Computed example of a mutant assay.
Amino acid sequence: MKIAVMGAGAVGCYYGALLAAAGHAVTMIGRPQHVQAMQRDGLRLSTADGVEFVVPVQGSTEPAGVQGAALVLVCVKSTDTDAAAAAMAPYLAPDAVLLSLQNGVDNAERLQAALGRPVLPAVVYVATEMAGPGHVKHHGRGELVIGPSAQSDRVAALLGAAGIPVEVSDHAMAALWTKLILNCAFNALSALTQLPYGRLVQVTGMVPTMRDLVDECLAVAHASGVTTLEDEVVWQAVLRIAQTMPAQRSSTAQDLARGKPTEIDHLNGYVVRQGERLGVKTPANRVLWVAVRGAEAAD
Results as ranks from 00 to 15, higher is better:
residue 224 S to A: 14
residue 223 A to W: 12
residue 172 A to R: 01
residue 130 M to V: 15
residue 229 L to M: 15
residue 63 P to S: 08
residue 75 C to A: 15
residue 52 E to H: 08
residue 178 T to L: 10
residue 37 A to N: 04
residue 225 G to R: 02
residue 103 N to E: 11
residue 153 D to H: 08
residue 264 I to Q: 00
residue 228 T to L: 08
residue 102 Q to T: 02
residue 103 N to G: 02
residue 51 V to E: 15
residue 153 D to Y: 05
residue 111 L to H: 15
residue 207 V to N: 08
residue 67 Q to L: 10
residue 217 C to T: 05
residue 221 A to L: 03
residue 24 H to E: 03
residue 94 P to L: 07
residue 80 D to K: 09
residue 191 A to T: 06
residue 255 D to A: 12
residue 133 P to Y: 11
residue 14 Y to C: 02
residue 75 C to F: 11
residue 45 L to K: 03
residue 252 T to L: 11
residue 81 T to A: 12
residue 294 G to T: 04
residue 177 W to Q: 03
residue 6 M to G: 05
residue 34 H to Q: 11
residue 237 A to V: 00
residue 265 D to Y: 09
residue 32 P to L: 07
residue 28 M to P: 02
residue 81 T to N: 14
residue 159 L to W: 12
residue 209 T to L: 13
residue 240 R to K: 14
residue 187 N to W: 09
residue 199 R to P: 00
residue 206 M to D: 08
residue 198 G to I: 01
residue 125 Y to A: 02
residue 71 L to A: 11
residue 38 M to C: 10
residue 225 G to M: 07
residue 49 D to S: 08
residue 64 A to S: 12
residue 284 A to W: 15
residue 191 A to I: 02
residue 147 G to D: 05
residue 106 D to H: 09
residue 17 A to E: 05
residue 226 V to M: 07
residue 207 V to A: 15
residue 241 I to E: 02
residue 146 I to M: 15
residue 118 P to T: 04
residue 90 P to Y: 12
residue 284 A to D: 01
residue 107 N to F: 09
residue 252 T to W: 07
residue 172 A to E: 01
residue 285 N to H: 09
residue 238 V to T: 06
residue 296 E to K: 05
residue 6 M to C: 11
